[in-house]
């Protein structure tokens, strides 16, 4: 849980506080739980709200849509994948990643996955994780972070492509795929 909060907030102290508060809030509640997993789900949903609150506060002080150096680098790298006619360069063409279920069973894959998430620029990662991990609808993410829809789309596209490229380079090395 702590690791999850850290991944989202990129701030160890803030993450620790959020988890602690979530645990306290969960234990203070009057709900009864049928089992360990129900309790876990409950604590987690409190943590999710805490994380969103913190992100909301942070988004007031930083401009999420401002293009940082890292984001500009990612966009330049993306452009380099294509020829002048906007079709894939042969060497950059996405290849098949094989059987997803098999990959997801590999313990080492998850280490690579986390590393790649941490490689994403902070603001890009935040938008992506709100969408994919906290499972907000895209228009909610935009609203919470005061982004326009098209801005949101650009950021998510950047995040997905960045993650895709990182996994392709670090895990799915070219030429290794079965087909």
């Amino acid at each position: 849980m702590l690791k999850f909060a850290q991944l989202q907030l990129r701030d160890a102290a803030l993450a620790e506080d959020a988890v602690q508060e979530a645990l306290v809030a969960a234990l203070a509640g009057e709900r009864s739980f049928s089992g360990r997993s129900a309790l876990k789900t409950w604590v987690f949903s409190i943590l999710r709200n805490k994380i969103v609150d913190l992100i909301r506060v942070q988004s007031r002080t930083t401009n999420i849509s401002a293009l940082g150096e890292d984001e500009a680098d990612m966009d330049a790298t993306f452009e380099e994948l294509f020829k002048d006619n906007a079709h894939w360069r042969p060497e950059a063409r996405p290849f098949g990643w094989g059987d997803p279920a098999e990959t997801l069973r590999e313990e080492r894959f998850w280490e690579v996955f986390e590393t790649c998430l941490n490689h994403l620029p902070e603001k890009t990662a935040r938008v992506f994780m709100m969408r994919e991990f906290l499972e907000f609808e895209t228009d909610e993410v935009c609203r919470e972070l005061s982004l326009t829809v098209s801005n949101c789309n650009v950021i998510l596209h950047r995040a997905r492509n960045g993650l895709r490229r990182c996994l392709e380079g670090s895990w799915f090395a070219p030429g290794v795929s079965a087909c």
Partner: peptide, 18 residues
């Protein structure tokens, strides 16, 4: 690959959760 990312994110959360 996009579908894989979505699946991986879901699984990532399930692993965290339980």
């Amino acid at each position: 690959q996009m579908n894989f990312l979505r699946l991986a994110c879901r699984r990532f959360m399930q692993r965290r959760n339980g």
